[in-house]
Simulated scan of single mutants.
Amino acid sequence: MSILGITGGVATGKSAVTQFLAELGAPTISADAVARDVLRPGAAATQSVLAAFPDCRDMQSEVAAVDRALLRARIYDDPEARKMLESFTHPAIIQELREQIARWRDEKVLIAAAEIPLLFETGLEDLTDTIVVTSCSDETQVARLRARLGIDEGEARQHLAAQWPLSEKVARADVVIDTNGTLDDTRRQVAALWERFTAF
């Protein structure tokens, strides 16, 4: 069996690769999806976040909930605020990832994928057997971010500058998926990866 850790920079195609693996039959988990659940209305982490960032409360919600857009803007260029947020959310996210991967190992699944954007930054390399990094050019990342977030080039490049250099992640990868091309190009690479781990 093999647990694949899917990681890479922002807008490099991590979710697409994870989706393609799921279509091939791999069970998957996404740290971002877990994070959304950790900050669901009424959750313990939600209460802590709202206490620390009361200006990020969702005023349209009838229950205590986080306005994620306001929260993203609040921590965008404030490293200390980001660290505080992570102290509330990361323990619960990491616990869920560890528990799910442990279940997969107990079940002896052939291949599974955990999409963890901050895999290296949070020192979670030990969770996985093979680290798969999605990679594309800076220009492609910038274009995707501008389209996704409706921001200008300067803001998009600020997003990239706030992250680990993609080249450093690529250097630590066991497998690199080049996502500069079409989705079909990416799908073919994922299919080859699948064959590598499922062929007998």
Rank of each mutant, 00 (worst) to 15 (best):
T46Y: 03
A143N: 10
S61M: 04
I151A: 13
D67L: 07
S87M: 08
Q141G: 10
V133P: 04
I94H: 03
A192Q: 15
A16I: 06
A102H: 12
D138I: 15
G42M: 14
E121D: 09
G42Q: 10
K108M: 09
A22C: 15
G13V: 05
S137P: 09
Q95S: 14
D174C: 05
I131K: 03
E86H: 03
S48I: 00
A43W: 05
E168Q: 15
F197R: 08
E195V: 08
W104R: 07
R36M: 09
L118A: 14
R98L: 03
R157P: 05
D32C: 04
W194Y: 07
D174S: 10
Y76S: 08
E96S: 07
A16M: 13
A192E: 12
S2K: 15
S135M: 09
S87G: 02
I101D: 01
A143Y: 02
I177Y: 00
E153W: 05
R105W: 11
E99K: 12
D129A: 10
K83A: 08
L4H: 02
R146K: 13
V63E: 11
Q95E: 14
V190C: 03
L71T: 01
A143M: 10
E195F: 03
K169T: 13
A22D: 05
P54R: 04
L183G: 12
F88Y: 08
A191R: 13
A64K: 01
F53W: 08
L166D: 00
V66W: 00
T28E: 12
Q100Y: 10
L124P: 00
F20W: 02
C136D: 02
S61A: 13
R172L: 09
S167V: 12
I116Q: 00
P41C: 03
E86G: 01
A114L: 04
E195M: 09
L21S: 02
I93M: 09
A44Q: 10
T46F: 03
D138G: 11
Y76C: 05
V10Q: 07
R157L: 11
Q47K: 09
A69L: 05
R146C: 14
L183S: 11
A102W: 04
R105D: 04
E96N: 05
I94W: 00
A173E: 11
D78A: 04
R172S: 09
F88K: 00
M84D: 01
E121A: 10
A73G: 13
R196V: 09
A171H: 03
V142H: 06
D37V: 12
L127I: 14
Q141K: 14
P91K: 00
V10T: 13
K108V: 15
W194H: 03
R157H: 13
S87Q: 01
T18D: 06
L145I: 11
L110P: 03
T186K: 02
G150W: 14
D138T: 14
F53N: 13
R72D: 09
Q189R: 02
E99Y: 04
A171W: 04
R98C: 07
G5V: 01
T179L: 02
Y76T: 09
V38N: 04
W194G: 02
L21N: 03
S48Q: 12
R144Q: 13
R98H: 06
L4M: 06
A81W: 01
R72T: 15
A22F: 07
V142K: 04
K108Q: 14
A102C: 12
D185W: 06
A44E: 12
L149Y: 15
A44P: 15
Q163F: 11
A35Y: 05
D106S: 11
V133K: 08
A51L: 07
V17A: 12
A199E: 10
G123N: 11
